[in-house]
Design a protein around this nucleic acid. Structure first.
Lengths: 249, 249
DNA sequence: CCGTAGACTTCCACTGGACGGAAGGACCTT
DNA sequence: AAGGTCCTTCCGTCCAGTGGAAGTCTACGG
């Protein structure tokens, strides 16, 4: 930057990224003022940068004058590494699972202590779920989250257990010690389950996807209840997860 | 920019976007030198910008020292607007189509004169196709491309017809006048077809998806040949496209 | 073991692109 | 008409950005 900078040390690059990152799941479109505030930039500076980003297709403007992420960023984002391979390979297996169960099927990976949903299939008849592709839900309240944390390196797991564990429903488990027990159990059992810990009326089962010795993703399914057919679901999930792992080579 | 700029007029923002856009389907990971060359930047300048982008999580570095698009850009890209809604809504219909035909199913939108594949379903038994989610194929050689151009504003269509039309297979249509005739025909028929224009041994049919009066996307299917059941495929596609349009509200 | 090549990293003097307060619209609601 | 909120443009100041050059690190061949 040059000129009378209000925040020395803030580079143009960091400001650009801040503007792009100002969008999130809850705020997919923002006005100029909102963008400026969220990126912590003076209005006129934001205006100038945003105008250029818009000109370049990194942002776009809706008919209402609000800004949204541009198609060019979609192109770029889709190339982010881990996701591409796993998603590509897993896609047919997710369909098979969906076809067999008509329940919502999830594919998730771990990014640090975050759990990223990278693909999802659900139909009208499925249990309504909160997840969206690209969203991150609390790991401790989801099947895929628990699986990924159970197989994470110890330092990551410790960090995740030490972070605040929000209570989402009355059934959410928020005691680190109890969660740690569950994670150990998951390694033994080979699958994780949740019972209304994320949404009332929704239970889930999830299994790890192995590529060689490493767990690269988790595959999960959401159903109204587990009583009847947990065994059947776990079996189907494991078959699919093995298939994906094998295809990953 | 400031200092001894080699290219006056190139702003930091445009350089940042150029670096991010240097990645594409064929080059998902690049070395520093490659990135600099593709973004047309001096090596040391590229190095500095890339280092900061990496620090910010917009890029990431593989174990081999190459650069890839970072997870943060994935988060951002997934928020790009049209895609999210249409993809979300269309997903179940794509499954239905796939289940009914076991052929590769495509969902694409137009972005200027480009055709973006925003979703795809294909199984092992489907005809192998070149498309990947996030890729752009020559519009004049694909069913969805023709549909989208047929319904595009006249200025866009003119621009698309005036741009170089590459011959991909011996059957690719590269005469603007003949393509224009086809596009007009598509408006009348309500669907587009291609016969080995993109890959030998692959034919396609595609229909528009309407939201109100506007065509917001195209739905296509790829099969080994059209002789037998073009009518059946068009009917199935139209049902699905209407369903998606209705769900979009 | 050394020389050459290629890719990456760091340094630093120069300067023009970036900064942002201020003023001027546009478009609401009261 | 007055007040509010949001967007857009202008322009004097000046430091962040620039990129050639030099240094480092591997890899390979003789």
């Amino acid at each position: 930057m040059a000129g009378r900078t209000s925040q020395p040390g803030a580079t143009v690059v960091s400001r650009t990224v801040a503007l792009l990152s100002a969008f999130d799941e809850a705020h997919p479109h923002l006005t100029l003022t909102e963008l400026a505030r969220r990126a912590d930039l003076p209005l006129s500076t934001a205006h100038r940068l945003i105008a250029e980003l818009t000109r370049l297709g990194a942002l776009a403007r809706t008919s209402t004058g609000e800004y949204v992420v541009g198609p060019r960023m979609w192109d770029v984002g889709i190339l982010a590494p881990v996701q591409t391979d796993v998603r590509e390979v897993a896609s047919p297996f997710l369909h098979d699972l969906y076809a067999a169960t008509l329940a919502t099927v999830h594919l998730a990976v771990r990014d640090g202590t975050r759990v990223l949903y990278i693909d999802r299939i659900s139909g009208q008849r499925s249990v309504p779920v909160v997840s969206k592709i690209g969203s991150r839900l609390p790991w401790h309240a989801t099947g895929v989250g628990k699986v990924l944390m159970a197989h994470a390196p110890e330092d990551v797991r410790a960090k995740a257990l030490a972070s605040p564990l929000k209570r989402v429903t009355p059934y959410t488990i928020t005691q680190p010690s109890r969660l740690r027990d569950q994670l150990e159990r998951i390694l033994v059992d080979g699958y994780a389950a949740t019972v209304e810990e994320m949404s009332l009326g929704a239970c889930s089962v999830a299994v790890p996807i192995h590529q060689g010795d490493e767990v690269v993703a988790a595959l999960g399914i959401v159903v109204p209840n587990l009583r009847r057919d947990k065994g059947r679901l776990v079996a189907a999930l494991k078959v699919a997860a093995n298939g994906i792992g094998r295809s990953l080579g």
